[in-house]
Design a binder for these strands. Structure first.
Lengths: 240, 240
DNA sequence: CGCGAGCTTGACGTTGTTCAACTAGAGTGG
DNA sequence: CCACTCTAGTTGAACAACGTCAAGCTCGCG
């Protein structure tokens, strides 16, 4: 995850913001006009975090929205007895618009950097203003929330109704197809964190990885992971 | 749950819609103008369901938004191997705005009547129109989604990180404080459904109810339920 | 070389499910 | 009114799933 140096906010305004806000038609920001962008870019802050740093902290008030420019981060809930529940891994151009821009709520999760991260903090008051003024943007934001919501419902069912094998299969497929999109991929997260994504103990996760390895479904090698038989994983995921 | 007879749409327009849309300042609809209301009421359909009927079905497309006028309904996901996961119980003036008004998505849950239910179906295309035209309404809707989202995160942690005792305590407190708001209350749902709210087997739910009964925390009597020691329940809920 | 953090493995105990039997109450037909 | 049936609720015992604990291992790093 190499970083180009010396890209402060002013330097990259033209390049980075355009990239975040326009080039990707999937982006929440794709519907903004040039004037809208000016509003957002006006006071945004481009900030860097080192691996391990906390980007947003659960239970603080949500004064900013964050847009990831580079790097990976985990989004997790700090639950009971120090247990964590990792909801997802976010990367380039992902967008964190937690709990309450709209009510004056607190965030319901913590975000922390898995690699070095570069991201923009945008004043949520400005997002709210755009939301009121540009209905296309409002609709995009609403879509974004709906998708998030439906992903949550999905994990809810996966975590409460599947056996451990199914949950491990789920996380492996998620990492391969939604996060890294390459086949042998490097894991920036520990076994403990993998377990935290699957709501189980790390020992259990390790044991099941080993089973998958001996049956030739995966080929783990330190922090790298290769999926050898995706069909099998999908089938395990479906059958619980 | 007695119903007044012969209240079709036209008859109750003035009474019911005003009640749904204005009298409750908590309502998503509280920010609508008179003209807005006309738009919504124009083609809304007031529909009755008997206990047990399906109001909205998972995986159908979300062409309508539903507003509960009378009665109770359960919102649940049809998960793996015929298992159900009950997300919440909704009642008077609650509002169901599932997955994708905004994308052309399918619903992610089923809603079915626990008692006789009277509710309004509103064309979601009209909601979308209002969303674009009235930014106050848009903000209210967004708040609504945020609250829903944060409730989901909460259940996610509760169901994955608590022991069964804590989960049973959670459902009992939820029913008393959020659904019925009276102390001895009548359960319109079976033990199986209680278990489906808590992600566990009905036998386990029954066993824990018995424990709570013998330790004097609750007094179950057939379908009625009385909370005798709420402090104890809260403590059990907190400690997992 | 030694140290420490994360990983791995096995043994064991606990939590929670499944299965089967039994009970209570509500409806049905004689 | 009494069998009969059917469903939901209840209980117990066996079993499987899963977590915890403790020990050994690997590998990078000083």
């Amino acid at each position: 995850m190499a970083f180009k140096e010396n890209q402060n906010c002013e330097d990259c305004k033209e390049v980075c913001c355009a990239r975040c806000f326009h080039n990707d038609s999937q982006s929440v920001f794709s519907r903004l006009t040039k004037d809208d962008l000016e509003v957002l870019m006006g006071n945004r802050q481009s900030i860097r975090f080192s691996s391990g740093e906390t980007i947003l902290k659960q239970n603080t008030s949500s004064t900013h929205v964050v847009c990831m420019k580079r790097g990976l981060a985990k989004v997790y809930i700090e639950g009971m007895n120090g247990k964590k529940l990792i909801l997802k891994i976010i990367g380039e151009l992902d967008f964190i618009c937690g709990g309450g821009i709209f009510a004056n709520n607190v965030r319901h999760f913590t975000v922390s950097a898995l690699t070095d991260v570069e991201c923009c903090f945008i004043d949520s008051e400005r997002i709210l203003r755009l939301f009121s003024e540009n209905s296309n943007f409002a609709i995009e934001l609403m879509k974004h929330h709906n998708e998030q919501n439906s992903a949550l419902l999905n994990t809810l069912v996966n975590l409460t109704q599947k056996y451990m094998h199914g949950r491990v299969a789920d996380t492996l497929l998620y990492l391969k197809n939604d996060v890294f999109r390459t086949n042998p991929f490097q894991l920036p997260i520990s076994r403990q964190e993998l377990a935290d994504m699957s709501a189980m103990a790390k020992e259990s996760y390790v044991r099941i990885l080993k089973e998958f390895k001996t049956s030739g479904i995966i080929k783990p090698n330190g922090n790298s992971m290769e999926i050898l038989n995706e069909e099998a994983l999908i089938s395990i995921s479906k059958n619980g």
